[in-house]
Amino acid sequence: MVSCGTRRFFLLGTVVVLLSACAGKFRTYDGPPVTRLRIYKSERLLFLDGETGPLKTYPIGLGFAPTGHKQFEGDGKTPEGRYVIDRRNPDSLYHLSIGISYPNDADFAFAAEQGRAPGGDIFIHGGPRRGKEPLNVRDWTAGCIAVNDRQIEEIYSMVRNGTPIEIFP
């Protein structure tokens, strides 16, 4: 016969397991709104700013060719300039991701003048799923901004589409 205390302990344990399974990668955020993102490539830092200043700061990884502005598809560079967060991907191959509006009109025009494609699909994202690129190098993406999975979960919950982002050399 199972005692009432044992049954209660078992039920409580089951509830804890179920709640932790529901937590997953989607977090909630009810703090001050993020009004702007700033990335300083040379310092490898991402700032989430609010009305009164920085709310959070994260170390980042960049494209495999981190110096200079992205100009062409496949150049491995991370863009520089002013963009906006324009989309979210909850099913990203890189845990979670938020899209950056690269290329803008100037990026398209420059690439067209050179007879080349500007590239695209630039995101802030987490680490790769197992079997993809290793995270043992600092700058490993094809031009995106990488953070770890816990950090992208936080960023994903805090940043809304339409938020401006400035990427500095």
Rank of each mutant, 00 (worst) to 15 (best):
R27C: 06
I39P: 01
I98T: 01
L93W: 02
R27Y: 10
V15F: 10
P103I: 05
G63I: 00
E80P: 04
G81Q: 07
L96F: 10
S20N: 07
P32A: 15
L18Y: 09
P33E: 11
A106E: 14
I98M: 00
A111V: 05
R38A: 08
P32M: 13
R27N: 05
P54Q: 12
H69T: 13
T35Q: 01
G61N: 06
G53L: 08
R44N: 09
E80V: 04
G31N: 02
I85G: 00
A106Q: 13
L19Q: 01
S92K: 02
L37F: 09
P59F: 06
G63C: 04
Y83Q: 07
F110N: 15
P32W: 08
G81R: 08
P33W: 08
L46S: 02
F26V: 11
P103T: 06
D107L: 11
V34P: 00
P79I: 12
K41Y: 00
Y83P: 03
G76K: 09
I100S: 03
F64T: 05
E51L: 15
S97T: 04
E80M: 12
D30F: 10
Y29V: 13
P32K: 12
G81A: 07
F110I: 11
V34T: 04
T14S: 08
F47M: 06
P59M: 00
H95L: 03
V16A: 01
R44E: 02
I98C: 04
L18M: 14
R44D: 07
L11C: 10
S42R: 14
F110G: 13
F64M: 08
L18F: 14
D49R: 09
P32T: 08
T78Q: 05
G24S: 14
N89L: 13
